[in-house]
Structures are given as C-alpha cells and as structure tokens.
Design a protein around this nucleic acid. Structure first.
Lengths: 93, 93
DNA sequence: ACCGCATAGTTTACAATATAAACCGATTTA
DNA sequence: TAAATCGGTTTATATTGTAAACTATGCGGT
C-alpha cells in the first residue's frame, strides 16, 4: 500500500493546500476563516508547509496593516497530486 | 469545510479499513503483511477501531494456534463512506 | 524431555504531532 | 490616551502514533 505524505495527511494542512490548489493566493485571515481554525494552529501549520517548500509566504502591508499572503508552489502542487493518487488507492475510487 | 473523522484519518487505521471494506474478513497476520505494519502498532490501532465499533475482533484457533479475525461492522462501513465523501471535498474529485 | 527459535499477539514507554492558550506589537475606536 | 481589536507568533500541553520490550504458546531437532 502506498505511503501517505504525512505533511499532507493532516486535516488542517490538507485544508489549506486544498484551498490554495484552487486559488492563486490567499491571505492568513481568509485561510483562518475558510478552515475554521485558530490563528495559532494555522500559523504553525503554515510554517510547516512553507518549510517543506509546499507554499510560499509573503508578508506585506495593505495600507498600514500587515498581511500574510500564501501561495502554493509547484513542488506543493506535485506533492498534492501524488498524495491524492496515493489516497485514491485506499478509498476505492 | 467538512470534518474528517480522526479515527479514520490515520494511515494505518485507514489502510485496515480499506482492506476490510473489500474483504469479508481478514486475520491479524494478513493485515500486518498487507499494511506492512509492526504487530504492536497494528494491535493498538485494531483496538481503537474495535472500541469505536468500526470493526469486530474475534479471537479463535486454527488447529491449536491462535488466530485473530477482523470484520468491518455496518457502523464502520458507514463511517468509511462518510469519511470518503468528506475527503472528496478536499481533493477536488 | 529439553533447548532454542519462531509465531501471534499485548503492554508500555517514548517520540512526534496537533492544538489552544498566552502573548506581542501595531491600530483603530471611544 | 485608555481600551478594545486585529494579525499574528511563541510556548506549553494534550493527543496520537509507533516501536521496543515482553508474554505465551507452538514447533523442530537431538
């Protein structure tokens, strides 16, 4: 049986990646609302995804307020596809 | 976003359930080989699935050797289906 | 019969992970 | 300018996963 990338096999990180697969970019607040997670948890999980090179995080400003933008990388896209393929073999679909 | 049943969102337990969805029954040794897990890990995870009512475990003998048989329950089947549905919403499939 | 190895599992101790609470600095609001 | 809010990060704790260590029984050889 295929291995499931442990970095993606986590509800919150998978949710983030799922959102980013469909969106050119998303900011921290949007991701927090969409995934219904706490800021602390989200912050930690985003860091892990960024450290793995699955997403890139860009900290900037909108007016004078900070904004953290996230984008999926090509490596992240590939990992996600591979994960989906592996998972399919478990789900009979 | 839908919640993913944490009991099923674990590689080994999911692998076990996946096998049992397609087989009337499977014994401990078969599951250990098929999932390439250690006996200790498998034992723990089978217990969790049984405690949740997702599988039933029958300890018997074949000749004079012990044998642990596992079967999925209707509740387990339902949980698996629900999990698959929830997961699909993450994977865009 | 007795020794040593194998098989089938369980228990337990440890490592890894996830999660939220507590915190921090800037910013808007009253 | 004090207090509440926003956008996060850090950190402590709870939960989980995993393998090592152990138990019990069986088998093969001498």
């Amino acid at each position: 049986m295929k291995n499931l990338d442990p970095l993606l096999h986590s509800q919150l990180r998978l949710a983030v990646m799922s959102v980013l697969m469909n969106l050119a970019e998303a900011d921290f607040v949007y991701l927090r609302e969409k995934t219904e997670s706490t800021a602390g948890n989200l912050s930690v999980q985003l860091d892990k995804l960024a450290t793995a090179g699955y997403i890139e995080i860009e900290k900037g400003f909108v007016g004078r307020k900070t904004r953290t933008l996230c984008r999926i990388t090509q490596q992240g896209r590939n990992a996600f596809e591979t994960y989906v393929d592996a998972l399919k073999s478990y789900l009979n679909i």
